[in-house]
Design a binder for these strands. Structure first.
Lengths: 189, 189
DNA sequence: GGTTCGATGTCAGTAACTGCCATCACACGG
DNA sequence: CCGTGTGATGGCAGTTACTGACATCGAACC
């Protein structure tokens, strides 16, 4: 066995979610998270740039998946079709995590202004990346920005519905329906 | 003459913008801002909940103006027309400030991730308020959310163009053109 | 077997924010 | 004209987020 237990980063994320959920974000210190993970505060800040980031560990990967989904759409697909491809990829990735964990995480974020702010920043980051991918496909401004922003709105709404839903509808299904609603709004004369 | 100089809040805002612009947000402490305004750090945090808020002093008023603009649109106006009314009100208010100051403020925000995050939060706040105002007008979901989000995207883009523009096109004019572009995108079959 | 390397620990320091109490000009009632 | 309350501020101690510099030690590599 190694000098240290493996997956420090993952342990920090688990510990943080548990503590935030139990006592709240503001009532939890970085040192407490580190202690529960068997580490020190200094190591916490080596893995995460700030206390909020510990809840957004997969965001870089998610952004890449979304961008790939947009880029891989058929060449003759319209902007909204391409965005839908990105949302499919997002739903596939997010839908893999246990819904109970996603719900816990969502509850913590909703309850904490600082975390809501960070989530908005992540969505804006995805939107910028999608805008760039659409421009790469030859879509023009301002269509690219508007399609990307609308797509991120759909992503947000669909995930909210998913974690709130008591039934067992899976995220990809909800996502496709949300995209269909977006189409219904934008395609009417 | 009173015990203290008047308009502490305004002096803090001026001092903060000047210092952020000269030395950067991270290199400026709240105590330095307060000192330049002839006050103490403690008083700074009585006027502003945190260091970022000092650059967003008018946001509550702006939100009310936007909401009023939406609510005051003719009863037979569509969702986008109502949103356009809110954007007119926003342009009227924001366009009154000296463009040089707006440019300075915008440069500081763009250069500082923390401030960009806060600006996104403000825009999301406006979007929520506009969504509520649209629902009040009988607009249904998800049209209300989408129209509100698209409207805030237009607001952001128009202001960016305004502060970047070397010419002397005024904000209301730019805003109306941006709204027209949004219509062109959404109204084509 | 020695050496370099990567992940962690330790410690000191800065600055954002908060709570508590003191101060003092001003307004207002008697 | 005097006492009293009030609102905006100052002073100060305390917590916590975050950072830089240096030490440690198992492991991989030569």
């Amino acid at each position: 066995m190694g000098r240290w237990e493996p997956d420090s980063r993952g342990r920090l994320q688990e510990a943080a979610l548990a503590l935030f959920s139990e006592r709240g974000f503001d009532q939890t210190t970085a040192a407490q998270i580190a202690a529960r993970a068997g580490l020190t505060e200094r190591t916490f800040f080596r893995h995460f740039a700030d206390k909020r980031e510990v809840l957004f560990g997969g965001s870089a990967i998610l952004r890449e998946r979304i961008v790939t989904g947009v880029a891989d759409a058929p060449a003759d697909a319209g902007p909204l079709d391409a965005v839908a491809g990105g949302l499919d990829a997002a739903a596939a990735m997010l839908g893999e995590s246990r819904r109970e964990l996603a719900r816990l995480r969502h509850e913590v974020i909703v309850a904490t202004p600082d975390l809501r702010e960070r989530e908005l920043a992540k969505l804006a980051d995805y939107a910028n990346a999608v805008t760039a991918a659409l421009l790469e496909r030859g879509v023009r401004q301002p269509q690219a920005t508007l399609a990307a922003e609308a797509g991120m709105t759909v992503l947000r709404v669909a995930v909210e519905q998913w974690v709130r839903d008591d039934g067992d509808r899976e995220l990809p299904s909800i996502m496709r329906e949300s995209v269909a609603e977006l189409r219904a709004v934008t395609e009417r004369a």
